[in-house]
Simulated scan of single mutants.
Amino acid sequence: MLIKQFVSDSSVHRLLFLYVIAWLLLDVAGGDIWLASKIYAMEGYQWSLQQHWLTESILHRGARQLNYVCCAVVLIATVVANFKRAKYKQLADSLLALSLALLSAFVLVAYLKAITNIACPWDLAVFGGTEPYIHLLQKRPSYLPYKQCFPAGHASVGYAWVALYYFLKQVKPGWRFAGLATGLISGLVLGIAQQLRGAHFLSHDITTLLLSLLCAKFCFMLISETPTTKESTYL
């Protein structure tokens, strides 16, 4: 019943429609290559920011470590709230849904990275590597080394937190768009950092955003459904 409700949700349809449009523009029409070419040229026809202290040490490794801390805080708060469930039932449910949303987004993105066999921009001959460019739905030749660059794993460190929109919609509705902005801005910054390093195309990041939104929506539907209002039907 829940699966049927999720699949038939109009906001899910809108997200999928927008994703298909983005995919057609970026992968099929060549937007990914065009944008990456501009970035590559801007860096002097090399990925000069690949090991830069800002993109590598702070926005890559540092952001990942900060995410571990934030996730630990959410998990601890979830355990504490559920121990006091009789007193804080709604908060306990909302925190549990948030924890599941974050975990499912990270796991799903990591799983897809492991099985899709898609190369990074820095692997491609057009950007100083050795491999041909292969579209997302094209079959990758077996003689090429196995790659794990799709969808964007590091961007999920930011985009997974779009789940704060659903969490705050339940516990502090007036702050829900601040929660959404937190996830979107974090994912955008980390995604751009990886594009500057040559690690991902824009379509990789947009796929991660879609997966994060769908995971968040499903987990909050699973744990604690809130009344639908005109204003909240967009997500």
Rank of each mutant, 00 (worst) to 15 (best):
V157F: 08
T182N: 06
G183M: 01
A155M: 04
K38Q: 15
H52Q: 10
H200F: 09
L112A: 01
G158Y: 07
R14K: 14
T78V: 00
L2W: 05
S156M: 10
K172E: 02
Y45S: 11
G183L: 03
T55D: 02
S104L: 11
C120E: 06
T182Y: 14
A110E: 06
V73Y: 02
L124G: 11
Y88E: 03
Y146N: 15
I206H: 00
A114P: 12
I39A: 07
R64M: 04
Y159F: 14
F220L: 03
L136E: 14
S94H: 02
K230E: 14
Y234S: 15
Q65G: 06
Q5K: 09
R85F: 13
I185F: 03
S11P: 00
E231L: 14
K139C: 09
V73E: 00
S10W: 10
H52N: 14
K139H: 14
Y159A: 01
L16G: 04
L202I: 08
L35Y: 04
A125R: 11
L112K: 07
T78E: 00
I115S: 13
T55I: 01
D205M: 09
G62A: 04
M42K: 13
Y19I: 01
L188F: 13
A63G: 09
D93T: 01
S94A: 01
L59K: 09
L24T: 05
G44T: 04
F150G: 10
V109N: 07
V69T: 11
L209A: 04
S212E: 11
R85T: 09
H204T: 05
K172D: 03
V80G: 05
T208M: 00
F83I: 08
S224H: 10
H204L: 06
W161M: 01
D27A: 01
Q148A: 12
L24G: 11
A63I: 13
L2E: 06
V126R: 15
A22N: 10
I118W: 05
C219Y: 05
L188R: 06
I3M: 11
T233M: 15
A77I: 12
S57M: 12
R14G: 06
L24I: 14
R85Q: 07
Y111K: 00
G198C: 00
L213T: 04
H60M: 00
S156G: 15
Q46Y: 09
L213H: 09
V126Q: 15
R176V: 08
I115T: 09
V107A: 15
T207H: 08
L188E: 06
S104K: 07
G129E: 03
I206A: 05
V109P: 09
F17Q: 09
Q90T: 12
Q51M: 13
S104H: 03
G62D: 02
L26K: 05
F150V: 08
A160P: 10
A119C: 03
K169G: 05
R176M: 12
F177A: 08
S37C: 00
Y19W: 08
G129Y: 05
H13F: 14
W122P: 04
L209Q: 00
V109F: 10
K84A: 03
A163I: 05
T226D: 01
D27Q: 02
Q90R: 11
Q65I: 13
K38G: 08
A22R: 07
